[in-house]
Write a protein that binds this DNA or RNA. Structure first.
Lengths: 191, 191
DNA sequence: ATCGTAGGTCAACGCTTGTTGGCCAACAAG
DNA sequence: CTTGTTGGCCAACAAGCGTTGACCTACGAT
């Protein structure tokens, strides 16, 4: 018996993917307003109207372009000791493996929908980790938030503002400096 | 003999100031692109063409609107111990006393000129502090950069992205948690 | 051979943007 | 009373934006 749900991979799926890839690049490089549909369409070598056909409008395109799975380990299998090192290391990978997070941060800084999406990611993917790893569950939101300030601050100055001394830091230096901070925010007793 | 250089405070100076105030508000709320000259002019209750007359073009307006003096203490009189607490405290004051820094951060995230202005402030106002306070002057740029990641990360999540748990933190909690981090980045031995 | 449809182009719409230049009222100096 | 300057408004421009709908082409199923 033939498999029913094997998606036939329509030809247009390639176009859809090309649009998404171009959109991610433009959003990451220019932010929401200056990443025009026309420019994205030109990058994807199709007509601007195709973007509308496939994603409805610019907001829909953005929503489709930046869907993030941080891929953080299951709360159960968390190394409670050096969770700091694990998180910093994972985040560095994420920021450098593609441009989605840069796009999200650049857009989030000026666009309400972008900011809300970042809040969602924080709430649903970072908070659970803090909930399992920090001593008093009631402190989890505050502790997760503190960790986020450090991790996002690094991303901001390194990948968006591009402060030269921050860009110059090696991966090892960053981990060595930031891991204790994140570790303390998540697990150390309140000051 | 009459004083020669007492500026006669022309009537238009009030208009100039109104434009700058409106511009800061709009840049802080909307970022560079969505803060339109028309909207700023309407806030200042004057005609859009006046903005051009007084500031040349939109870039000129932005440059005039965001001039930041962090007002950090002279390197000589620096409390080398709890410099962390002093810096965190000072930065919280700065972010809350007006909207200039919010405007600068929002614009810097999507606008090259904005990012470069932030680099300039970092280089000329934050670096000197690190130079005097950290053990090895050669490490000053890296250490100042690390402190900047933490301070700007807080500002980003609290004043721009507005993560609820970060907004909920009290001023005292922030100082208590962040001061040791900044202190360590600036003065502790390399890890 | 025909027909429906998926995939795509093209030209245009209405709107907003930054920016320009001409016009006008007030008012102080001569 | 004239005249020049200061401070301001108004109307318009060209360019770029998101978005729309009409039209074309290839092709698999009937």
């Amino acid at each position: 018996m033939a498999v029913m749900n094997e998606s036939p991979r329509r030809r247009s799926d390639d176009t859809r993917d090309a649009i998404l890839a171009a959109a991610r690049e433009r959003f990451a490089a220019d932010g929401y307003e200056r990443a025009t549909i026309r420019a994205i369409a030109k990058d994807a070598r199709i007509d601007p109207s195709m973007v509308m056909r496939y994603y409805g409008n610019k907001e829909g395109l953005f929503a489709a372009a930046v869907s993030v799975d941080l891929g953080l380990p299951e709360p159960a299998s968390l190394p409670r000791h050096d969770i700091g090192r694990a998180l910093v290391s994972r985040f560095l990978d994420l920021w450098e493996e593609n441009e989605v997070l840069t796009a999200l941060l650049r857009v989030g800084a000026t666009n309400q929908a972008g900011a809300e999406r970042m809040q969602g990611i924080f709430r649903e993917q970072v908070m659970p980790v803090a909930l399992r790893v920090c001593p008093d569950p009631e402190q989890a939101p505050a502790r997760a938030a503190l960790a986020a300030t450090q991790l996002l601050g690094l991303a901001l100055t390194r990948y968006v503002l591009r402060f030269p001394p921050t860009v110059a830091l090696t991966r090892e230096e960053i981990v060595a400096w930031l891991a204790p901070t994140v570790q303390r925010y998540l697990t150390a007793p309140s000051p």
